[in-house]
Design a binder for these strands. Structure first.
Length: 407
DNA sequence: GTCAATTCACATGAAAGAGACCACGGTCTAGTG
DNA sequence: CTAGACCGTGGTCTCTTTCATGTGAATTGACGA
């Protein structure tokens, strides 16, 4: 593009009849004033947390529900309201929201260190004993009479990694505190998660439980309509578009976040095409693009060994295709192929044990599907299927090849 | 033909090591007045 | 005398290896009808 061309492009971009009014309304961190179809849950949570306003310790609370069922948005909504009230009335109330999936707080040490930081303590990233960190946190928390509500989102991730000692310590903390009181709100999208917990932790943590059922298609439509009114100019959405988004998302266990993403990206696509309306085809396009972006993002940020593993799997897939071999790909073959790839790319090959875990990780990420199966005397192994569209597969193959210095 | 035992090829668990990162206190060293 | 460099110790954290145990159905082989 020549310089003039670029100027014109930007010029045109600016004056173009954009279909968005407020794109933020479709983003997942947007907080609308009203959250439809969650009135009951909000009321329940509010009544459980309300004692905090009288500086009494609220019960520990547990929220369950699959992704995109509004857990996070509801609790944040209530958090904001409570904090506003407490500010207005000058109450000693502190509420901290933490997402345990984030790197910052994914271990016991990091979580407690982060909490201590929230209370104004300067804690090194590492180097101190965990006990020390607990002590620092206890002390600073107990300085004054305060109600502290700790919201731990995706708490299952944290427990999976660190075990339940952390929760045990946190639930017991109140007995050691003289002034402050701590309540925990745990949020999990895995209802089975409680079964991993120590019974003592289980009973004290889930004094109260609230379940967030998935939205149905009609409810998702409602949500989409509400948000799109804010996000788009009037008349930019063709009939049936919202319904289609909702249907897609309802198919995926009523995930509203996904529906919003779908609509937003469809809008972006239409916008880029200089289309003044979002049409049904944009939704299909949008779904593909979201999927593709997600996979490329994951693939390119994986560690080298993981990339080599995935590369081996894709290579095996191509082999199968060339030789018209319909057999599935098995874990043993992947390991052999992987060792070859390591030699080619100068990587030190890992043991089979480790590779087995890497395969599980790729499975968790949804890039592959690995199913354990027993082939009788043929032994036990995993059957591995790629979970990537064929157009994306080529791209993934190319990216990995480059990353591993093979192509 | 039936049924229990065997066998295969990994899966899966537990523990521990390697190496990166970091804090902290003690010691050494060079610069300063 | 002091600030800064350097070192050793002890901690976390992630990735990995090592060793041990588990697993599910095809296969095998003994048994009886």
């Amino acid at each position: 593009m020549s310089k003039k061309g670029l100027d014109e492009f930007f010029e045109e971009y600016l004056t173009k009849n954009n279909i968005f009014v407020n794109k933020k309304a479709l983003q997942s961190n947007y907080h609308p004033d009203h959250i439809p179809h969650r009135e009951k849950q909000i009321k329940d949570i509010a009544s459980i947390l309300a004692p905090a306003l009288k500086l009494e310790k609220p019960s520990n609370l547990f929220l369950y529900g699959q992704t995109g069922t509004g857990k996070t948005i509801c609790i944040k909504h209530i958090k904001n309201k409570l904090l506003k009230l407490s500010e207005k009335n000058n109450l000693n109330l502190k509420i901290i929201y933490m997402n345990c999936k984030l790197k910052k707080v994914d271990t016991e040490y990091r979580l407690i260190a982060q909490l201590a930081r929230e209370f104004g303590k300067d804690i090194p990233i590492t180097g101190l004993p965990t006990n020390e960190i607990y002590n620092i946190f206890f002390k600073v928390l107990d300085l004054k009479k305060i109600i502290f509500i700790l919201i731990l989102d995706e708490i299952d991730e944290l427990i999976k990694k660190t075990g339940d000692r952390l929760l045990y310590n946190l639930t017991r903390i109140n007995t050691e505190l003289h002034n402050a009181q701590l309540s925990i709100v745990g949020i999990s999208n895995n209802a089975l998660f409680r079964d991993y917990l120590d019974p003592r932790v289980k009973s004290s943590l889930s004094e109260e439980e609230i379940i967030f059922p998935p939205y149905n298609a009609i409810q998702i439509q409602d949500i989409l309509n509400q948000r799109s009114k804010e996000a788009f100019k009037q008349g930019t959405i063709k009939e049936g578009v919202v319904a289609k988004c909702a249907a897609y998302a309802a198919r995926e266990h009523g995930d509203a976040r996904r529906a919003l993403d779908l609509l937003r990206v469809a809008g972006e696509i239409a916008d880029r095409e200089n289309n003044s309306q979002i049409e049904l085809k944009h939704i299909d396009e949008s779904e593909k693009r979201i999927e593709r972006d997600r996979i490329l993002e994951i693939v390119s940020t994986q560690p080298k060994q993981s990339q080599a593993t995935l590369f081996s799997i894709i290579e095996l897939y191509y082999d199968r295709k060339i030789n018209k071999n319909k057999n599935p790909v098995y874990a043993g073959e992947v390991y052999d192929q992987y060792k070859d790839i390591c030699i080619k790319s100068g990587l030190r090959p890992l043991t089979q044990r480790r590779l087995s875990d890497i395969v599980s990780e790729l499975d968790m990420l949804g890039i592959i599907q690995a199913r354990v199966l027993s082939k009788g005397r043929g032994g036990r192994t995993r059957e591995i299927k790629l979970n990537i569209l064929s157009t994306t597969k080529k791209e993934v193959h190319r990216i990995l090849g480059m990353a591993l210095d093979i192509i």
